[in-house]
Simulated assay, not measured.
Amino acid sequence: MIKEKTALVTGASRGLGEAIAKRLASEGANIAAVYAGNADKAQAVCDFCQENYGVKARAYQCDVADFAAAKELVSRVREDFEGFQILVNNAGITRDGLILCMKEEDFDAVVDTNLKGAFNMIRHASGLFLRQREGAIVNVSSVTGLMGNPGQANYAASKAGLIGLTKTVAKELAAKGIRCNAVAPGFIATDMTRDQKENPMVQMIPMGRMGRPQDVADAVSYLLNAPYVTGEVLRVDGGIGM
């Protein structure tokens, strides 16, 4: 269903974004891999997609928290790929700390990247999707946005905000044939969560283990291939959010 379409994936140089980009490429989608700082890793993801799946893949540097930069990114990808039909908002950062000592700049940085970055991308891509009368958006939220987590007030707020953004965009654009869903990963084994392996909450996962990036990529693929699903938040968390 996504074969020969183009997917713009933010935060695609590692972790969940890398797994998502590779999964979509395996289904025949062309990939616009967006990265913040590591050009070599982003290019490696593109090379893998092209060499293994024969799709077109290009890397783009962008700070998605920058409204103007996000607009320019959408314009470049639209020109290079003659449009795109899929947007996966995966870019995210953490700046953990207890609320009593969290710095204002740490709160702002996380919300700006995780939440405002997704808004920026949707804001600029939605016009293209409306003209195409086709588009599918998946936002990568977190089970932390549903449950909260000590030491992550900024991260939880940003990921909870993504859920509200997802549902609102889904309602606004559904009549135009554009769908918007979210995945809410739990504790997934990536570079970002390597410090969470000793978190007591990991021991509370009913399935008894952390997830894999591929588990999240599977969920994203499902949502992109499910034409009658919109406004959904799909947990990928081993049951911890039950």
Score class of each variant (00 low, 15 high):
L8N: 03
L8D: 05
A12H: 07
L16P: 07
L16G: 03
E18W: 06
K22Y: 04
L24C: 09
A25I: 12
A33F: 06
D40P: 00
K41W: 00
Q43Y: 08
A44K: 14
D47Q: 15
C49R: 09
V55L: 12
A57F: 13
Q61M: 09
V64M: 09
A65R: 13
F67H: 14
V77C: 04
F81V: 13
F81D: 10
Q85C: 05
N89T: 06
N90F: 12
N90S: 13
N90V: 13
G92Q: 10
I99L: 15
L100G: 01
D106H: 14
A109D: 13
T113S: 09
K116F: 07
A125F: 04
L128N: 00
L128C: 01
F129W: 05
T144R: 07
M147Q: 13
G151V: 11
Q152A: 02
Q152I: 05
A156P: 00
A156I: 01
A156S: 13
L165Q: 00
A170Y: 04
K171Q: 12
L173M: 13
R179P: 07
N181V: 01
D191P: 09
D191V: 05
R194V: 15
Q196V: 12
Q196M: 15
E198G: 03
I205D: 05
G211A: 04
Q214V: 14
A217K: 10
A226V: 06
V229L: 02
G231S: 07
L234H: 07
R235K: 15
G238K: 11
G238Y: 10
